[in-house]
Design a protein around this nucleic acid. Structure first.
Lengths: 211, 211
DNA sequence: TTGCTAAACGGAATCGGATTCCGTATAAAT
DNA sequence: ATTTATACGGAATCCGATTCCGTTTAGCAA
């Protein structure tokens, strides 16, 4: 769905009006999501785009398809940011800064977090994409910090990623500042060792596993 | 709503059939929530209770009223558990253990977490109750650990509570073990100090505020 | 026991929003 | 200019939530 290019077989390309509508819908959806959250009625988006609901459903059969299309760019940008941090900072600092960048991503894109953790089967593809894109990035940052001896070696990247994205998900309550503090707290947890020596085991409250 | 006792004025007491129905509905709802999550259709609950939807709505006008009634006992039990830990453990250990107890609470009661963080205005009363009950408990545990010099002094209890409950909220993904590890990580974050000395400021990735 | 009445009951009716369906319109290939 | 696969719009349908109201009943008093 939403193929902008024809396959190299003899299939027709996407019609111009369709391509135009897809763009319009995406723009409208981004606006509506920002204003009313991801749970906003589909009709609202269709109306704002000046399009029938049928047209919207043709291009985005499931709501997550729409969200994913909007989020994709942001997620990619966040992934890229890791390279910059890694190049210009000490490993732990790069890690800490990227985690905050992650908070920005989740907190800014209203509903990304909610959609991500909804557990709804229809929303499968969204977490799949986000996690597959970001987990390796975090893994690399962790590896570097571990190699530098700055953090412990027993953390599962995806697990940490999920936890941080949850903490960062905005609610009626806490603003982004709270999310920042709590994510920073987790990074500090990575740096904590009983006697400030890494690689000791027998830790009272942890039993983490890598990968 | 759901007043089991008459007020001391001359108001009539709740009728026996009503009281009976309320009990039946609560039992049915608990079952359905466990089986199908908090978003299960109201009709399902009414049917299982052998009651019309009208009756259900009479006693529980909003879904959170139902959830709250079910959860309340569990939350209270969790709050009480803190006293036991505080009595029998070192402060940090009491803190760590209670946090894990909290994970149990959220992870076990399917949908408590989801309902808690939904942000839906209709669900207001639930987070209000949960946080008002648990925040002081956590605050006490933190105070004790701080007094013992085991953790830093700059953490906001409610903020930490929210973050942990979010991390512990079960999803399609991570099981309870992951939640445990991540919450333990946050506790470790509390114990972390740049050079393992508490009360130093100028920390790279934190800027917490108390209360 | 027998009314009497306020409270409670059940479920039909109503109200959205989501999703599907299909007759009409049109881009683009010939 | 003709053809036809695509795409379009929005009416129709579906489904769960919520309301409404005629009927039933618990509890009180005579």
């Amino acid at each position: 769905m939403v193929e902008h290019q024809e396959k190299d077989s003899g299939i027709r390309p996407v019609r111009a009006d369709a391509r135009r509508n897809i763009e319009t819908i995406l723009r409208a959806a981004a606006e509506v999501f920002d204003t009313s959250g991801v749970e906003a009625p589909v009709k609202l988006i269709a109306d704002k785009a000046g399009v029938g609901v049928g047209t919207l459903y043709r291009h985005f059969p499931h709501r997550p398809d729409l969200i994913k299309a909007i989020i994709q760019k942001e997620v990619d940008a966040c992934a890229k940011a890791a390279l910059d941090f890694a190049a210009s900072e000490q490993p732990v600092e790069a890690l800490a800064k990227w985690m905050q960048r992650l908070v920005d991503l989740v907190a800014t894109k209203r509903g990304l977090g909610a959609a991500l953790h909804s557990g709804n089967a229809a929303y499968q593809s969204l977490p799949e994409y986000v996690f597959s894109r970001l987990t390796p990035v975090l893994r690399d940052l962790l590896d570097a910090a571990e190699a530098a001896g700055s953090i412990r070696r027993d953390v599962n990247a995806k697990e940490l990623l999920i936890a941080c994205m949850r903490v960062a998900t905005p609610a009626s309550e806490g603003d982004i500042v709270q999310a920042r503090r709590m994510v920073a707290l987790m990074v500090d947890g990575l740096r904590f060792t009983e006697l400030n020596e890494c690689d000791n085991e027998q830790r009272s409250s942890t039993n983490a596993i890598r990968r």
